[in-house]
Amino acid sequence: MSATTTTTDPDAARRAPVPAPPRRRRPPRPGRILLVAVLAIAAGYFLLPVYWLVVAATKSTDRLYGSFGLWFDDPRLLSNLGDIFSYDDHVYLRWVLNSALYAGLGATLATLFSAAAGFALAKYRFRGREAVFKTVLAGVLLPQTALALPLYLMFSQISLVNTYWAVLLPSIASPFGVYLCRVYAESAVPDSLLEAARVDGAHETRIFFGLVLRIMSPALVTVFLFQFVGIWNNYFLPLVMLSDDRKYPVTLGLTTWKGAADRVPELTQYTIGGAFVSVIPLALAILVLQRYWRTGLTEGSVKE
């Protein structure tokens, strides 16, 4: 897989100049065997449900219950996929696109807003700064699902429920993103650079968009991914906010299918196949982007 090479390259680059070479290519010792065994068992554990999903996605509704779960039986992935995508006027495709919209747009805006706020909190001294930061921190510690219910009642008073905004709006405030960006900006954006830019007569907005954003990009990737996955995986908020199934994200859509499966048995298979398809893009994104994520977190959240 291409993902594996992308993840290893930077490590190699970073570690190459280190004089002490990692101990490799030694004859297997008991410790080594134990190490390999533990890592392999862990890999088996993490892959088991995914493997089951792959196998199950190829089965017919009938064989799903009637055959051994961990091996193929009359595989028919393509016809299954065709059924899933065409069911109920291509509603599944709508759900995937909705998820992409909620997560993509939501995470982009959240990242931008967090970057601006984090930068302001890190590099400006103004009245109320600490109060704002403390409030943001409290926001990090607040369980988001506890907010969903009152948020629903508020949104219903202003006719926002059952709209795209109902899911998007609460997704674009990321207190944790602000926190990360502030910590990162504090250490990574040099004051001297800002001073120099100001001396050159650059406007604050220009400095931010032209200079700061680029310097903060590792932290921004982290915030983006964090938020993207968070929104993509969210269930409670859309469950509460949306009623029109054409606005559902994948998570909500699939549970609806599962709930209706006793009346329409083939929906069980569609739920599984739909889950399979929905996992693929995110899995790929995660595999490709995890190295950026790593760097971002290193510099940001865990600064001593």
Partner: peptide, 8 residues
């Protein structure tokens, strides 16, 4: 990988 699989 599992982190990319929604809890639901």
């Amino acid at each position: 990988l599992p982190y990319g699989v929604p809890g639901v």
